[in-house]
Amino acid sequence: MKNIFSKHHLADQDIEQFIGLQLRYGVLLSSFIVLVGGIVYLIQSGSMPLPHYQLFIGEKGGLNTGSAIWHGATAMQAKGIIQLGVMVLIATPILRIMFSLIGFILEKDRLYIGITLIVLSVMMFSIFGGLKV
């Protein structure tokens, strides 16, 4: 049973506080980037007619890879900046898994180091596994 005075519990609490902060700042950072990109987008093309969203063009729309988004954002293109914010948003929970892993390593909890590594590998498979087709 869990002893509330043990070192383990302290580490547990610390890492929980840290994860809470990391999630909050991740969301704040991504919404800030999306907001900046959105304002630029509206200034540049707010008065233009709406794209045909009823037709799906998918990959032909571009900005669907990390490097394309990064190039777009650093060239200060509105859509590139928004997509960079989107990437930060998607990365926030993934980063959370990594911080949980560090937490379990500090606690020397082998079982959960293993479990977290499995979740992380599924994530990496999803990112780099070429599943887009």
């Binding site: 063009i57 914010g85 948003l89 998607i90 926030t92």
Partner: peptide
């Protein structure tokens, strides 16, 4: 968040995420 991120990366690569839609949706929902 983690569950959605697992499929979100695949959908991002497939071009499901359009900047013009993502911008109002993310800010509005938050």
């Amino acid at each position: 968040g983690v569950t959605a991120a697992a499929s979100a990366v695949v959908y991002l690569q497939r071009g499901y995420m359009d900047a013009g839609i993502a911008f109002p949706v993310v800010l509005g929902v938050l």
